[in-house]
Design a protein around this nucleic acid. Structure first.
Length: 803
RNA sequence: GCGCCUGUGGCGGAAUUGGCAGACGCGCCAGACUUAGGAUCUGGUGUCCCCGACGUGAAGGUUCAAGUCCUUUCAGGCGCACCA
């Protein structure tokens, strides 16, 4: 027998698969399709992280199994290659981002090939390829035409370190998601996408798709739907002030109102507000605060009362003060609230600080002078006119009905979700295909001129004062208006990295089409994606954005389904050996190149799947890795004890059928660790027995093939029936042969195990009871005691209750 | 603060509907082979006062029976975070 030489074997089969184009998906096939998807990587300079192959191997296993089950499988790969790191590198080293990107892609490709993934490389895509981003730009123009892309000057999140605007989703804990830099509010003219228009559908359609519940929950929370009412408060100046509230039941307890510092009413009332200077100063102070400070300072409420202006509570007729405070956000609701300190913690804190009256209108809690009572389930209305005596849940609609009847307010649904800030002041992104003409305004370039290619530049430094590097590309910027032919200027901001990834899965279905983003036939056949695995960190970013784009494309008739992904799962992180997050600074990074060099791709893949529960974070272990290598070698060495027998031997048959069932089921549930454990047990059994039939061996390597494709192909070539094992049929099991004829049952007395017995599998209650009571051990133990009850569970146990 | 998740041997982790806790792997111990072993193979390995008892973060509860269900609580992680 030859020694196990993974270096030789792995290279050999990777070449063979390439030559045979073994994993190419077929367009126009009659076969059932299966579309497996992983998040295409950003090709960073660091190369592959051990986290990437966790997801890729998992879906590779599913894809390979489906292929063996006769499906036409699409398992594609590409590069999400626009983005900041390449651009920053370019600025520092004065190399074109395209050059460094190409280099990084080549390195990633080498690494992915080395791991033996069954990707269809003929459909490889790259978001920075003009042939690709032509269609990203095309989608943008369609959004623009439908009024879903608009330019607006507004305060946005600005990363002071990257010098770039950020979407709401890109700000995490008040700092930049990418670099951790400080985020401030900056007024900037921005392209925005109206994702809020789709808020309702993005929530509702979650009901029809198979996403992990925690993913759905996170998206629902992020979109943040709330039902309430807009209520109009008259001001003593005669102006109207509209507030949003979900607790209209508490209107009788509203003792003041608050508007956000950015609220336009302040400017409008400038002449009436007696302390306008003080208000102005407060506005300025609020504007200077970063997101971080605003959340940090959340403990202590600040604000200024508008002197000379009062609001009138519409149900009590009482005049109440109007404050400006930054605990009210201009971006949510109407930017103004009615404050009910007795039943809202934030209002309570503010009222305490400013000595404002606290009036109880819901009873059932503690003294509202001591603490706000916010429970909406148990309380009863008091001091509330016509609402008094009602339960909160009845009082809310009753009040809204009243307000609507009296013309004082109306029902309103609000979302926390905000429109998507879509401009980036960067070079290395898709140019936004819009020109600005003084006469015609913003005009999309004709679709025939797509792609609008990035101009070649020498310098990639950002322009002055938050301008894009493209501001320096004078020749490129100046153009003609497609509408009137007059002079016009191109947009110099580019799209965010999330643009290209919002539709990439559609391109895979027909990757080389130059007439459309993909043909209708290809989209009809392949979409939706059947199973998409990716990281939790993209739940409110990529996953939400791409659902939005997909719904838009559905609305304009480009794609046939409402939702892009039928099923979404998520993997846990692989931590460093010390249990901490893997990072260069912690010095606990495991490099896939080293691992493959040491134990080979098969052992690496297996360990990635074996190290823990797929959906949980688990530390890496070099020892554990060796265990998997050892197992692979043990499988290889089974050759030594292999017999010529084709089928299963009598004593292994049941185990073989059970193993086939277990491995198949566990793969489907992404319980890869237990599937591998089952195969280990199988090997332990045949090793103990000292022989394995050829039939058993071939079944074993077929089950193992999705996990360790190279060495199983090699063994198949030596002992199998020819052809590629990767394209053979998945083994079948006989349900009848997975059940034992005789099973061991447990006999308990008062829940404690006292004896065990072998009984026929189908033995009924009476039989079990009889067996248990006839046992000598049991007889001795229950001697002289009163048997109260005997519980027999067929197939499991007998429990005798005695006194 | 709110929402979600996780707590099981020395370690990573198993345990479809409540029904033998600790599968499988690592580590450790012993033995075999060996000039040698950080290679390979075989056996053992939750804890203890080892007949037996105790054991799934803690405390209660439901049940003939609880890692699994309920209540309270502690610890860790993730998400959101003044969203009215």
């Amino acid at each position: 027998m030859v020694e196990y030489d993974f270096k030789k074997i792995e290279k050999k089969w990777q070449d063979k698969w390439d030559e045979a184009n073994a994993f190419a998906a077929e367009n126009g096939s009659d076969k059932k399709k299966f579309y497996a998807l992983i998040e295409f990587p950003y090709p960073s300079g660091q190369g592959l992280h051990v986290g990437h192959p966790r997801s890729y191997t998992a879906m590779d296993i599913i894809a390979r199994k489906r292929r063996m089950q006769g499906y036409n499988v699409l398992y594609p790969i590409g590069w999400d290659a626009f983005g900041l790191p390449a651009e920053n590198y370019a600025i520092k080293n004065n190399v074109h981002p395209a050059v460094i990107t190409a280099k990084n892609v080549a390195n990633f490709k080498r690494q992915l090939k080395m791991l033996g993934f069954s990707f269809d490389w003929s459909r490889e895509i790259n978001t920075t390829d003009p042939k690709y981003y032509k269609w990203t730009q095309w989608i943008f123009i369609q959004l623009f035409k439908k009024g879903l892309a608009y330019k607006k000057e507004m305060p946005i999140n600005w990363c002071t370190s990257c010098n770039v605007g950020l979407a709401n989703e890109e700000v995490v804990n008040g700092v930049c998601e990418r670099c951790g830099g400080e985020v401030i509010q900056k007024r900037q003219s921005q392209w925005m996408l109206k994702i809020t228009e789709y808020a309702e559908r993005l929530i509702n359609d979650l009901d029809d798709i198979d996403f992990l519940e925690k993913i759905k929950t996170q998206q629902r929370n992020w979109i943040g739907r709330s039902e309430g009412a807009e209520v109009t408060f008259k001001l003593t100046t005669g102006d109207d002030m509209v507030v949003y509230t979900t607790r209209s039941d508490t209107l009788f307890g509203a003792t003041y109102t608050v508007i956000s510092p950015e609220h336009p009413l302040i400017e409008k009332l400038a002449d009436t507000i007696e302390n306008y200077d003080e208000v102005k100063a407060y506005q300025a102070a609020a504007a200077r605060k970063s997101e971080f400070e605003r959340t940090e300072l959340a403990k202590e409420k600040t604000g200024v009362m508008l002197k000379g202006v009062k609001a009138v509570n519409p149900v009590t007729g009482t005049e109440i003060p109007v404050f400006v405070s930054d605990y009210v956000l201009v971006t949510y609701g109407t930017g103004a609230i009615m404050a009910v300190p007795a039943h809202d913690t934030r209002d309570w804190e503010f009222a305490k600080k400013f000595g404002l009256p606290i009036i109880e209108v819901v009873s059932g809690g503690k003294n509202v002078q001591e603490e706000a009572y916010t429970d909406v389930y148990k309380g009863t209305m008091v001091n509330s006119g016509f609402l008094t005596g009602m339960k909160v849940k009845d009082a809310i609609p009753a009040m809204i009905d009243y307000l609507e009847k009296e013309g004082l307010g109306k029902r309103k649904v609000n979302y926390k979700l905000r429109d998507w800030v879509f401009s980036r002041q960067r070079y290395w992104g898709e140019p936004i295909p819009i020109v600005h003409c003084d006469k015609c305004g913003y005009v999309p370039i004709p679709e025939s001129e797509l792609p609008l290619v990035l101009p070649d530049m020498e310098e990639f430094k950002p322009g002055e004062n938050g301008e894009s590097p493209l501001a320096h590309a004078t020749e490129w910027i100046n153009t003609k208006c497609p509408c009137c032919g007059g002079p016009a200027k191109r947009e110099t901001d580019t799209m965010p990295q999330w643009a290209g990834s919002s539709w990439y899965f559609l391109r895979y279905t027909d990757a080389h089409n130059d007439k459309a983003l993909a043909s209708k036939e290809a989209l009809d056949y392949w979409t939706p994606v059947d199973w998409y695995n990716g990281g939790m960190e993209h739940t409110t970013l990529h996953l939400l954005y791409s659902r939005f784009w997909h719904k838009f494309l559905y609305d304009i008739g480009v794609v046939p389904t409402k939702e892009p992904y039928q099923k979404r799962t998520s993997h846990g992180m692989i931590l460093g050996e010390n249990g901490e997050k893997m990072s260069k600074s912690r010095g606990n990074v495991i490099n896939p190149d080293d691992v493959v060099n040491e134990v080979g791709a098969d052992a690496f893949r297996m360990y990635e799947m074996f190290l823990g529960a797929f959906d949980q974070s688990t530390p890496w272990s070099q020892q554990g890795l060796k265990g998997c290598y050892k197992f692979i070698e043990r499988v290889w060495n089974l050759q030594k004890i292999m017999t010529d027998e084709e089928g299963y031997s009598a004593d292994i048959e049941k185990l073989a059928h059970k193993t086939i069932k277990k491995v198949g089921d566990d793969f489907e549930r992404m319980k890869f660790n237990t599937a591998i454990a089952a195969m280990m047990s199988f090997v332990n059994e045949v090793s103990k027995k000292g022989s394995i039939t050829k039939g058993e061996y071939m079944t074993l390597i077929t089950l193992l093939n999705p996990v360790a494709p190279h060495m199983t192909e090699e063994l198949w070539e030596m002992y199998g029936e020819g052809g590629l094992l990767s394209l053979r049929q998945w083994p079948e099991y006989d349900e009848a042969k997975t059940v034992d004829d005789e099973i061991e049952i447990v006999v308990q007395i008062n829940g404690k195990i006292r004896d065990k017995a072998m009984v026929p599998a189908g033995l009924d209650r009476e039989g079990l009871q009889k067996t248990a009571l006839e046992s000598e051990k049991i007889k001795a133990l229950i001697e002289g005691k009163n048997v109260v009850k005997v519980i027999a569970v067929p197939g499991k146990l007998v429990n005798i209750v005695v006194k």
